[in-house]
Every structure is written in structure tokens, then in C-alpha cells.
Design a protein around this nucleic acid. Structure first.
Lengths: 128, 128
DNA sequence: CCGTATCCGGGGTGATACTG
DNA sequence: CAGTATCACCCCGGATACGG
């Protein structure tokens, strides 16, 4: 199953990892910030709990994020990027840069709950 | 419709343009090569004619590729990248590079009908 | 607080056959 | 050669309600 698949296209591989409906958004938010489920919900309100859970699970299965459960009441679960997840950042930045320019060229304002610091920043944390 | 949308995330914008099932594959194949419908079919055999047509139409609507019909018999239609389509290349290369390393690290051979020249190549053509 | 279970509708996707 | 037409299926994804 994990070897000798017929066709493995690197671009497709990447897309399968981060192409999910809210995955890039989740990853981006997680750059430099460990977040709780409820915080992610507020940051990505258009995603239903089910979808958010599903996307988080898939990201976790792909080892892009890690999930930490604190056995306390009330429950507390935190999500953060793994090293692999952090390595995705250049792609996200490239996509952000291209998409942003595209929107600008079409007179559309990019208003997303992400800070615009795609390029010219080699630091791991982007705000906070 | 084209202005003042509620949320425009650049990353999502990019994904909408190139996130389609075979879009990145099509774009990649078109880098440096004008191709006919049948050639694309052979290069992407897993895509049915319907899907291929659909993806090509969407790419055309998004102005990433151009479609040229030659009024001859038998019919001849050629697809090529627009300037906008060519500007996608850095993203594709980044995704290719990441996906390739991921596959390598997992002991999976990347065997896709693409040449590996993602980085270290500023030329517009990649093979041929 | 952090999810899961369930239902359900729509569209993405494939298979096959056909046409200018 | 370059598609289109049609059927059908499955899974994505939303809404709602419930559980530990």
C-alpha cells in the first residue's frame, strides 16, 4: 500500500496533504501558534466542527500537525505544527504571494485572517 | 460578484485555480510545451475525457491556459500556457520539490511523467 | 470544552457510448 | 481527433443533535 504505487506525482502528493478544504488555512494559523480547537473554530468560522475535526485528523495522520490532549476538566486539546508541517510553509507563502497578487490585479481586496508576511521573513513565528 | 466578497484568502484563491484534480498536472505538462488534447490524454491517462475537458475549460476560464482550434480535418486543438499560467510555475516547483522529498523520505519512488527539474533551472522550457 | 453520530442533499467523478 | 451525452454512484460537506 505504501510502496510501488503505480503513479506518484510529487505535485499531487503535496496537494493531497494540503489541498483539503481548510487545511492550508489551518496550517497557516498554526504557524507560530499552538491553538485549541475552539480557537481554530473562531478563526475559521465557515468550517463546521465536523469538517474541522476531519481536516485536523487527516493533517495529524499525515504528520503535519500534532494533537495534545490534556486530561483535565473542562477538556483541553491543543494543535501545533510538526517539523514536517513547518516545512510546508514555503509552499504556503508562495501560494499566498501568488494569490495575493492575483487578487490585487483583479481589484479584489485580500481580507483573510492571516497576516501578510509571506516573504521577507525567515523567522519561524509570524506574529504574537 | 467580483468585488467585496466576504473573505478572500490568497492561499484559497490559488488553490481554487490550481487545486482541481488534474490541474497542476496539466499545467506542469504544458510548461514549455504546447500540447494537443490527445497528447494530454496520453500523459494523464487516469483522467477521463470528460474530466480532462472540464479541467481544461476551467483553466481556460481562469486565463491560465489558452485554447487554439485549427479548422482542419481531422480536428486539431492545441493548449498552451498563458503568461498568467506561466507565473504559476514557482508554486508548482515548490510543491514538486516538497512532494518529491516527502516521497523520497518515505521510500516511495516518484514516478510521474514529469521531468525533475524543479529547481536550478530558470529556463522556460524543461525538456524537449 | 471537544468533539462524535447521524441524516441527507448535491456535485464531483467514472464508465460507456456516441457525434462533427 | 476532439470532444459531448447520459447514467449512476459515491463521497464531500452542511445541519443538527448528542456524548465524555
Amino acid at each position: 500500500m505504501s510502496c510501488c504505487s503505480e503513479y506518484n506525482c510529487p505535485v499531487d502528493t503535496t496537494l493531497k496533504m494540503i489541498g483539503g478544504k481548510y487545511k492550508s488555512l489551518i496550517l497557516w494559523h498554526l504557524i507560530g501558534s499552538t491553538l485549541r480547537f475552539g480557537e481554530l473554530r473562531k478563526l475559521i468560522p465557515q468550517a463546521t466542527p465536523k469538517m474541522l475535526t476531519q481536516q485536523l485528523r487527516e493533517l495529524e495522520e499525515n504528520n503535519l500537525i500534532s494533537r495534545t490532549v490534556y486530561p483535565v476538566v473542562p477538556p483541553k486539546v491543543e494543535y501545533s505544527l510538526t517539523d514536517l508541517g513547518r516545512s510546508i510553509r514555503p509552499i504556503l507563502s508562495a501560494m499566498y504571494a501568488w494569490g495575493n497578487e492575483y487578487l490585487v490585479n483583479n481589484g479584489i481586496e485580500a481580507n483573510c485572517s492571516m497576516t501578510v508576511q509571506a516573504s521577507a521573513n525567515t523567522n519561524n513565528k509570524h506574529s504574537e
